[in-house]
């Protein structure tokens, strides 16, 4: 709690006196997601609120996004129970070129019902390219490798990738709009109870749209 208070104070102080070449945006967002596990019959979709914050300092940037999704089985799905999933994503990036950044981060998704869906966590490493469409409008495309994925039900995912598309639009000097889409694929395999390796792939597509105040 004390650490959280210090962090909030630091954030407020930093936001109150931005240095040159420094920008902070923070704001709410709305998320839409669809996830599939094991087979086409286990499919969920949901919506929920979220928030995202960005800090840019010189050629470095840090992003953090969190959203809480009410996931319900889709029609025709074999799943029967709904759950609330909390998804946390974070990135730190270094802009190597005017159009290319190298980045690393983490992703974590945790359902509130332990057996309704898998919780997972992974480290991401990848690149992001961006392009200035016009005054205040930047489009970007990201490709990450999700390394060291861990699942609540066990197993590994040697091949885990994420592809993202996003748009950042400065509506005014202090108001930004952002939209993004991310697709994650985990080729998870497991051997519960000593059985032979079984493939239980997972996929999720997540779209976010939100507003942010910029300083």
């Amino acid at each position: 709690m004390r650490n959280g208070g210090r962090g909030a104070l630091l954030l407020v102080l930093t936001a109150g006196a931005p240095a040159a070449a420094q920008r902070i945006t923070i704001g709410p967002e709305f998320a839409v997601a669809e996830s599939r596990e094991a087979s086409s019959g286990l499919r969920f979709s949901g919506v929920g609120p979220g928030a995202e914050a960005t800090l840019v300092w010189r050629r470095f940037s840090a992003d953090a996004a969190v959203c809480s999704l009410d996931m319900t089985p889709t029609s025709g799905s074999a799943a029967v129970s709904s759950f609330r999933a909390t998804e946390i994503d974070a990135w730190v990036a270094w802009e190597a070129l005017n159009y290319l950044s190298f980045e690393a981060g983490v992703t974590n998704r945790t359902p509130d019902a332990e057996f309704a869906a898998q919780s997972l966590g992974a480290v991401r490493v990848g690149v992001r390219t961006h392009y200035l469409l016009g005054p205040g409008a930047t489009i970007w495309l990201r490709g990450d490798y999700l390394a060291g994925a861990q699942f609540s039900g066990g197993g590994t995912a040697p091949l885990a990738l994420e592809l993202s598309l996003g748009l950042d639009l400065a509506l005014s000097r202090h108001l930004h709009a952002a939209a993004s889409y991310a697709f994650q694929r985990f080729d998870r395999s497991t051997n519960p109870g000593g059985l032979p390796q079984t493939s239980v792939p997972m996929e999720q597509s997540l779209a976010r749209i939100g507003l942010a105040l910029g300083f």
């Binding site: 839409v32 997601a33 669809e34 599939r36 596990e37 087979s39 086409s40 499919r43 979709s45 990738l161 592809l163 598309l165 996003g166 748009l167 939209a179 993004s180 889409y181 697709f183 694929r185 080729d187 493939s199 792939p201 996929e203 597509s205 997540l206 779209a207 749209i209």
Partner: peptide, 18 residues
């Protein structure tokens, strides 16, 4: 990237972002 074993590609989110 879509795993065909999990069915067709999810399109709602992609279409919205596109």
């Amino acid at each position: 990237l879509n795993n065909s074993g999990l069915g067709s590609t999810p399109g709602r989110e992609l279409v919205a972002a596109s």
